[in-house]
Design a protein around this nucleic acid. Structure first.
Lengths: 109, 109
DNA sequence: CGTGTAAGGAATTCTGACACG
DNA sequence: CGTGTAAGGAATTCTGACACG
């Protein structure tokens, strides 16, 4: 239901290209993953694969880092953002639930 | 002017991933390039880089091939399509030219 | 014509670690 | 803490070619 294909979120970009796209070194990109700021998918053999969204995220991280913000703080902010989003998603869920109840929409997976 | 960044047209996907995305073998993908059906960018060391647009194009090619259409014919059709597009682009150009003339827009590069 | 494959080589990516500050 | 680097190895990609049908 919430499943439209999205170029922006497809994890198809290898780390070398992400490095070019962001201006970050491969070392930095891996480190930000270690600090849980970014979550690439892994190919079968373990190669990292990023989305355009990840690339944008990394650019934001790079900007924060230039301002001297530590990875820990960046992570805190990200978690806050996520909580906010989860909140509105939750409201959506509830709303949808009401509508479904009203119209008798099929609810199984 | 016609320069908005587009995820769809960014050449950032390596051939292995394109292979997974399309279901085509790497050999096939390279061959369709040889037949001028697809035009990946090349990295500094010569590695092919494709866009999501290229991936879609390849899927179309794969469908045609399954119907038995030869690469040559596929190419013919692509060229026809391109000519049609060029036509409308040309009209746009002309229109823009008129507007620019009317409003005295700066025309140098 | 369209695709598979073995060949040889170069570039990519991975992990864990030591270094520096 | 954040990043660089050398190390060793595995997987990726490249080209040109022979094969088959």
């Amino acid at each position: 239901m919430t499943s439209e294909f999205s170029y922006k979120n497809s994890k198809v970009i290898t780390i070398g290209i992400v490095s070019e796209l962001t201006g970050l070194t491969i070392r930095q990109i891996r480190y930000y993953e270690e600090r849980k700021l970014i979550f690439p998918k892994r190919s079968e053999q373990g190669n990292r694969q990023y989305s355009f969204n990840d690339v944008e995220q990394l650019i934001n991280i790079a900007n924060k880092r230039e301002e001297g913000v530590q990875t820990f703080e960046i992570r805190q902010d990200m978690l806050k953002e996520k909580r906010k989003k989860s909140g509105s998603q939750l409201r959506d869920e509830l709303l949808r639930g009401q509508i479904n109840a009203q119209f008798g929409v099929n609810k199984d997976r």
